[in-house]
Design a binder for these strands. Sequence first.
RNA 1: GGAGAGGUGGCUGAGUGGCUGAAAGCGCUCCCCUGCUAAGGGAGUUUAUUUGGAAACAAGUAACGAGGGUUCGAAUCCCUCCCUCUCCGCCA
Length: 422
Amino acid sequence: MLDINFIRDNQEQVENGMLAKGEKENSIVADVLAKDEEWRAIVHKADNIRSESNAKAKKIGALMGQGKKEEAQTIIAETSSLKEEIKNLDEQVKAIQEERENLLYKIPNVPHSSVPVGSNESDNKVFSTWGEPNIEVWRKPHWEIVERYGWVDFERGVKVTGAGFPFYIGPVAQLQRALINYFINEAGKAGYTELQAPYFVNEASARGTGQIPDKEDMMYVVPRDEFFAIPTAEVPVTNFHRDEIVAEQDLPIKYVCYTPCWRREAGSYGKDVRGLNRLHQFDKVELVKIVKPETSYDELESLREHAEKLLQALKLPYRTLLMCTGDMGFTQSKKYDLEVWSPGQQRWLEVSSCSNFESFQARRMQLRYRKEEKNTEMVHTLNGSALALPRVVSAILEAYQEENVKIRVPEVLKPFIGRDYL
RNA sequence: GGAGAGGUGGCUGAGUGGCUGAAAGCGCUCCCCUGCUAAGGGAGUUUAUUUGGAAACAAGUAACGAGGGUUCGAAUCCCUCCCUCUCCGCCA
């Protein structure tokens, strides 16, 4: 959510930002400002009447204390109309405020000036590439490898839960556990505090990070207890400090958190969902940063670099995309995607997404820090995957296979797995 | 799940209808005094929002777990929900 004061002062920028992000309409910006005018006028009126009413109530108290019941009675009679009026105005304020809020929720974050303008994924800029994409034709896609060895059981996953909920068996299960440990350890070395978070959140948390009202359909819900299964650790971890005012000297706050992620992925189909490419449950190690506004873009770069180093250490070729305005989502102001090369599929697979939200999430969460002596200011929040597991697993299986289809273990994972081949 | 107790400012903790946005203590900030690794004195110290102001700031409004109700007036009374603690039950 954007700051209404910011919108008031930067109407044009917000309107242009909406169009750049691919919204067809931006009249909502003018609507929200009009609604805000209305709100302020009526709040002002209500406050004045309340003030009058409070003054009278005080006088009544004083008169009662002096035993002047008669005089008090006449003032009480006067207040009854005020009471009615206040009640009326309060209802209006509440209604208008809600309308204003609803409009505000529909305005996306403004893209940063360094973000390329574009309408879809073809306009994303290749920011950098690392390594040489392997194009040997004998390499098999990971689904053939895991089938041959019986390392992932999709069918039993369907039986037990449904499509997109596979079992991982033996070496691949071990590989995933090794990756999780490796990723968390590396984040720890980089100064991230390890967190274990709830896998279910309440509605306020889902709202805080922007899953509601925008992306409600991506989440699994537990209706009886009104919980949402987390689509990413970003949700519980960023909400960790919701409704708090943190101390300036505590910033930046950096967390690493491993969780499974649940996503309904409604509408996905085709080649994209083959094998481990797209699942309803997958594992991910997530980084979250809570920082001072003036540092957030530097923090974004170091976040991206950290994620990139993991792919480098695994010796997996990848490219980094700077997402264009039209492809970066509602809540972000700037976003990088890391795509690993899948030699068995001959295509790039997204394994990380590093974003700066500026104060967009912080404002929803009322997450502030105390600046200098008095003032409080919204923090900036960032997050990035480091990394999402299944596609890294695919890339490893495909890149580390030898012609006899044996799979070598990446050097940095050997301490966790304890042998040379899976 | 059953029974009971309770949720007040950064913390401890008072407050059962008006003079309480909130005593007192601790902590913190600033100033003064003091020649010594201490003590004393004074002032300040929640948040949001509206109006005015370039700003400092001033005035108003709201908030004592959340929401609703009673009342001229609610931290204080009533209702619903959430949470915490104690005992019982169940359990990794």
